[in-house]
Write a protein that binds this DNA or RNA. Structure first.
Lengths: 394, 394
DNA sequence: GACGTTAGTTACGGTAACTTACTAACAACG
DNA sequence: CGTTGTTAGTAAGTTACCGTAACTAACGTC
């Protein structure tokens, strides 16, 4: 490491510690940061001074906590930078703008059916919504734009390889977005929606390691190691949907046999429950609850998930599973079935209990996660953003 | 990061780059290190000077390569520090002492059946062999001792939880070893033998990501991400042996059903081939090759492995698989079967070919890996070893 | 033997972080 | 109401690391 990078590294450390503290609990002081980062007080003061001058951090009113001089609370600056999340889903397009503090500066959503033929329209709409968000946020400097898509994305150029839910194949999403004037000169990335959803979960479980399973159209997911999202070669790590749970079993929409999704995807469940294709994902659970064979269906879902989870836990040696999406509302019922299956097959249980937990169901975690991801460059390299913020308004 | 750590960090960087260069190809010069580490020549010179003075690095005779001043080749110092690997296996106990250059300073091995009742004897023998190694190496300062055991080890205190191959359960291995005078004051760690074997493989594939599968008594393995061994919560990540490949299938020795090991472990194969339990692991492949149903057996192994591999590849999103142990000699025959199964089930194939490769069969990779692991502290924190080496002898 | 080239060193300067010692602002106590 | 103790934050000076620029060293080539 070169000495010039040392400052950058420490700036990043301080800003990250500051953000972590202010999301979790009470804001933190310079002295507190010094303790957490193991840097000295003068060093932290200098770094904080730099961050405050650059409008990346703001000081609050001094707070007295018992004896001693009151601390000056530090928080990520509000309203100085704009991070933008976009979401393209089967029935809507949305855009969310947040600032460094995670505060929502603007939220735009349009409900519209997105299909293969309307791909261009959806992309145009996304650009338009993004334009509205930028305007409503007061034309702040934009950190980055991250687009959530329910499909597979080529890591190099942001092409959507396939998004079954949208009926998209080979859509050059990022390229098309960049062609719009609203996005001129911006940095745009696309990501799988499930992988972005998990970012919201990571915020609530800093530094933890867990498997994340999300039921939406298919079964998506992610692997989180020590608070960091595992990527894999193509950025697809944690795609549990096509884990084989029964060799030669039911045929999956992907053409393979015995995939988890052949048993517990939205479509598989809908068909099994004898429901029409007009039942929304959100209503699937409720529709199931009306049926007499509910327990049986829950049991089937639980055993299928349990097998996939057990294998994943064996390979990864983790002990925590977080259920999200339409799995979250039935997590309590699924838990005993999954637990039984996991305990039959997973090795990790030898060392202690496996935790099967429910996600703290945030509204639209994918969109929020996309915006959070768009914030990341600032925390990774604060130095690059010094001098590029809008001066504080209030 | 504190400024004092910067030096340590750069020392580590330089030493690691130096070691990497000298294992792979021709030794490297100060100028070469400067290029690789992106530090400047004067900085590298200063750091190298420190390492040379500390007897961690040694200079060779200048080598002229075309025009310009000849370079001074730098290599990790030989015979100044001792890293010790121990191995406790079903039929032998061994000890290997190497120096920073990876050169073998002493190798001791005793063939003896190790079982539950002879656990104490085996540990005594290990300590004795270690004493011989230290003596033969000339009482050099010992970096660390790492013990390879074919079983599960508690990460906190080095207890062997279970080692089916040795018939051990709950053996306080590290504690017992430390009680011997030969190991007084040394740092001792225990590790699973398969996880240590993979270190030898990592040396040959620096920075790569792959799944490692090793056939010995059971099917062990490891997951390597960007050249780093994945640990998991208990240090068991990559234990593929008990991946479920057929729910409700054959009963495994672990008591579960449908495990991979229930189909392709040494015992399972031996029984299937109708061989007695006097066939050594090393001879298993040869014994199989004499049978008329060889192709069928290979097919069964390949399909079983393929399923486990496909699921692991799906979850981890990796594209390379390395086969080792008794799987290595039949890797060429297994490859087409595994490939077919993987292509039927794994998603990664959509993005390109999955590579199924054979390990560069080193002799006794577990023991060698243990010694390599025992070397690691020096590369991680060279500063701590400055002033603690034995002065060069030759 | 002058020149170009590559390896490595020397001298110097900038910068970041640490040490020490201070001031600031409060509570508790008598 | 001052004194004392405690915690937050600042100021000044020092240390140490690394980078820059310019050098020397040791070769091959023309």
């Amino acid at each position: 490491m070169q000495s010039a990078h040392l400052r950058e590294h420490n700036l990043s450390t301080v800003l990250a510690a500051l953000a972590a503290a202010s999301t979790s609990a009470a804001p933190i002081s310079r002295a507190g940061l010094a303790k957490r980062t193991r840097l000295t007080k003068p060093t932290v003061s200098k770094l904080v001074e730099e961050l405050v001058n650059a409008s990346l951090v703001e000081e609050g009113e001094p707070i007295s906590a018992g004896a001693g001089r009151p601390m000056v609370p530090l928080t990520p600056a509000r309203g100085t930078l704009l991070a933008i999340g976009l979401e393209i889903a089967a029935d809507h397009v949305a855009c969310l703008g947040i600032d460094l503090a995670g505060e929502v500066l603007s939220h735009q959503i349009e409900y519209r059916k997105v299909t293969a033929s309307s791909a261009e329209d959806a992309i145009d709409l996304a650009a338009e919504l993004l334009g509205r968000v930028r305007a409503e946020a007061g034309d702040l400097p934009v950190v980055e734009v991250v687009v959530a898509v329910p499909g597979r994305i080529a890591p190099d150029d942001g092409r959507v390889l396939s998004a079954p839910n949208l009926d998209w194949t080979e859509v050059p999403l990022v390229g098309r977005l960049l062609a719009h004037p609203e996005l001129a000169g911006l940095s745009v990335r696309a990501q799988n929606d499930n992988r972005l959803s998990v970012l919201t979960e990571i915020d609530h479980r800093p530094g933890e390691s867990f498997i994340y399973l999300r039921g939406s159209t298919g079964i998506g997911g992610a692997v989180v190691l020590d608070g960091a999202l595992m990527t894999g070669t193509h950025g697809w790590a944690g795609e549990f949907g096509h884990t084989v749970i029964e060799p030669g079993g039911a045929t999956c929409r992907c053409g393979r046999q015995g995939c988890l999704e052949a048993y517990v995807s939205y479509h598989a469940l809908r068909e099994r429950a004898g429901l029409g294709d007009d039942v929304l994902i959100e209503d699937l659970v409720e529709a199931l609850s009306l049926r007499s064979d509910r327990a049986e269906v829950i049991g089937m879902i639980g055993r299928s998930l349990g097998l996939a989870i057990a294998n994943a836990l064996n390979v990864l040696d983790l002990t925590t599973v977080v259920l999200s999406g339409y799995l979250a509302p039935i997590a309590d019922e699924l838990e005993p079935v999954i637990r039984e299956t996991v305990e039959q097959h997973a090795l990790a249980v030898e060392a202690g209990p496996v935790l099967i937990e429910r996600s703290d169901g945030h509204a639209d975690p994918a969109l929020r996660g996309a915006a959070r991801a768009a914030l990341q460059p600032v925390f990774n390299a604060p130095g690059a953003w010094i001098g590029r913020t809008s001066p504080r308004s209030h």
